[in-house]
Design a protein around this nucleic acid. Structure first.
Lengths: 244, 244
DNA sequence: TACCTCAAGTGGTCAGACCACAGTATATAT
DNA sequence: ATATATACTGTGGTCTGACCACTTGAGGTA
């Protein structure tokens, strides 16, 4: 039974720091945006060397829990939940995740997100969505600009779903696909048609029709997928998701 | 437009190490399970101090890319993809993720996974699934044992889906819910009924009926959700997912 | 008032010593 | 000869204390 046992300690001191911070976060002492004490002070407080402390802080930074600013200080991450920038693309490269698999994951998540948004979205979300749709239509001749609003549109839907976990996961997947996507959009096809689909999705959400929202989102994404040639190969392999 | 700019460098040296390793992984020099050179050697190779090297290694370890074994060496992670152990539960605590949201994410993922498994599962998966179903039935009087096979069952379905990204995400979510779950199963209800549902799900997958598999899985999970009292509150708040 | 300089605060890096753990070789006892 | 105890080697873990690099803001200067 493979993962029965747990790796309890990633080396004593490091985990001591991690657990310390975790405790402070869980009991509410430390909240997003807060600044933690200077390394020298905190090290003295925890009775460990500054070097060890830094290892622990680095660990937390990698997880996206802490944000370090040279010459300024170290802070608890604020803003939207964030699995350390490229963690997904990193382990993706490691395990040979393939592009069509990424896209499949994205479709599964976003269709669900769209349905949830249709059920729970608030007026504020509808407003933002409408604005982005307008911007999208206004950018059909400017691929770079278009992509910005496209991303924003999907992000707002994730927000409107009321489920930050799913939103964060989607964010991670999308950002790990960003490089490739940008290229595609630049040599893109049919931004007008794509813009129309965004509007339809918006309408389905606004009128609270989860099933429609789901279906339209799936249709939209599958079309995008084809545009990038990332359909699932029938029985053979495909090149890995590796960037560049 | 919030996250326009990227934090390019998490301090020069650290990223130097991370990028070095990343390059080695992406060009195939380093593969899962491989051992990397001793810290002292590698530090000399990269022309940086051992302390800085260790910061980088620690970063990679946090991401789940490297596994460090005191007194033995440092290795590239093998086995199933793994977002550093508690990364999700950590940022969950930070952003106040709630249990029903976790469960909702799990349901969305696992229903999709079940459908995919029904479409693509191979005989080997069916065999393993059948074995676990048998074990599940054999454990209806032993909650602890039951949980083990329950987890295994769901994990095999994830495997059978053919999408390692989705499988890894599910794994992360489930493991971040583990503590709470174990308690529930121990004071549990109706393991026999639950066992029956597993069998039904298995049959739907085996006979390649994605829609049925999806529906049964959803039914199964919603029931488990209710058993834990984790339904989405109508309009109010609910206590955070904080452990203990 | 506008700009410049510089000092304080904070994270980043370095060097080298020593500690702790795991595995293996070797010595010793039976 | 076998088995147990011991020492050695390799590798990660920690410590100390000094110095470097970035940001900010106070205070001086034009």
């Amino acid at each position: 039974m493979a993962r029965a046992k747990q790796d309890k300690q990633e080396s004593h001191r490091t985990m001591q720091v991690v657990n310390h911070v975790r405790a402070l976060i869980e009991n509410g002492t430390l909240k997003p945006g807060d600044k933690i004490p200077p390394e020298r002070d905190l090290a003295r407080t925890l009775q460990i060397s500054r070097a060890s402390l830094r290892t622990g802080i680095g660990y937390l930074a990698a997880l996206g829990v802490m944000k370090i600013k040279h010459g300024v200080g170290t802070f608890v991450a604020d803003g939207p939940p964030d699995f350390g920038q490229d963690s997904l693309s990193f382990i993706g490269a490691l395990h040979g995740f393939q592009s069509w698999q990424m896209f499949e994951a994205r479709i599964l998540l976003e269709t669900g997100l769209a349905a949830l948004a249709a059920e729970r979205g608030k007026d504020e979300h509808f407003t933002l969505l409408a604005e982005e749709v307008a911007e999208i239509f206004a950018s059909v001749d400017n691929p770079t600009e278009y992509l910005i609003h496209d991303v924003a549109f999907h992000r707002i839907i994730a927000q409107a779903s009321g489920n930050p976990i799913l939103a964060a996961i989607m964010e991670a997947i999308v950002s790990s696909m960003y490089d490739r996507r940008r290229k595609t959009v630049e040599r893109s096809i049919d931004l007008r048609e794509s813009a129309g689909m965004h509007r339809e999705i918006y309408r389905a959400i606004r009128t609270r029709k989860p099933a429609d929202a789901r279906r339209l989102m799936e249709q939209h994404l599958r079309m995008a997928q084809e545009a990038q040639g990332l359909e699932r190969p029938i029985g053979k392999h495909e090149k890995t998701v590796a960037p560049q």
